[in-house]
């Protein structure tokens, strides 16, 4: 850990703007700036993931680091900022980590195979509104990795569960449901994530409020695939 002092922090600054300000001062002093990930700063890209004062994305619930503001802290506070830590998330530099393991889980099966070309008529497959909403709740996962960071086992079950769920809930996702879940779970294994012990800490810290029910759905889909679906 390195100590930095930053004066005159505006309470309306976002946490990342505070880091920007600190970095500007470091550069002016000729010191290297602190490396950290960020992109949209609107809470939807999943790039900014910092472990702030012992919690993933800091003290607020359902909030990404970029949506956290300095008004959530007291004047004169010492704030501990660490990268998300897990074996599957190697640190690139400072607060910047490599989350490619999550991308590889999606590449293993988190998609539907479809012909490219013109989009099909939207209403040709009837999907009740509540089903669409349910799928969207899972699809809201931004892949920030807070679930892994906060899990005492560094398990990626909530991430993978969300990615399995948002497809399997919809009719288009059902065709490849069995192979998808098995391949994604196997990839999760290869990436050396830990095992889920249902503490549900992940759903507490998830900035998108993904429900841990997605983990249970993944477990169900996996067991269904292994027990009931014919091999190829």
């Amino acid at each position: 850990m390195v100590d930095y002092q930053l004066d005159d922090v505006n309470p309306e600054m976002s946490f990342l703007e505070m880091l920007d300000t600190l970095n500007e001062q470091l550069v002016l002093k000729g010191e290297p700036p602190i490396e950290f990930d960020h992109d949209c700063r609107e809470g939807i890209c999943g790039q900014c993931g910092l472990f702030i004062n012992g919690r993933a994305h800091g003290p607020l619930a359902a909030t990404t680091t970029c949506q956290l503001h300095m008004r959530s802290f007291e004047d004169g506070d010492t704030i501990y900022v660490e990268p998300f830590r897990a074996k599957a998330f190697p640190i690139i530099k400072d607060l910047k980590i490599n989350r490619s393991a999550l991308d590889r889980i999606i590449q293993a099966g988190g998609f539907i195979s479809t012909h490219t070309g013109d989009a099909p008529e939207a209403n040709s497959i009837p999907i009740p509104h509540h089903v669409a909403e349910q799928a969207f709740d899972s699809a809201a996962c931004i892949g920030c990795g807070a679930c892994v960071a906060t899990c005492k086992n560094s398990s990626a079950a909530l991430f993978t569960g969300a990615k399995v769920s948002h497809l399997v809930i919809l009719p288009q996702g059902k065709a490849e449901a069995a192979t998808r879940v098995v391949q994604m779970v196997d990839q999760m294994e290869k990436e050396a994530f830990g095992n889920c012990t249902n503490t549900k800490a992940c759903e507490v810290e998830c900035p998108q409020g993904i429900s841990a029910d997605d983990i249970l759905r993944m477990n169900f889909e996996y067991n269904k695939a292994v027990l009931l679906v014919d091999g190829k």
């Binding site: 850990m1 004062n53 830590r85 086992n153």
Partner: peptide
């Protein structure tokens, strides 16, 4: 699970 946590734990862990 211990292995998955990696070599370094959090300095400040809540």
């Amino acid at each position: 699970n211990w292995r998955a946590n990696g070599a370094q734990g959090y300095v400040y862990d809540r």
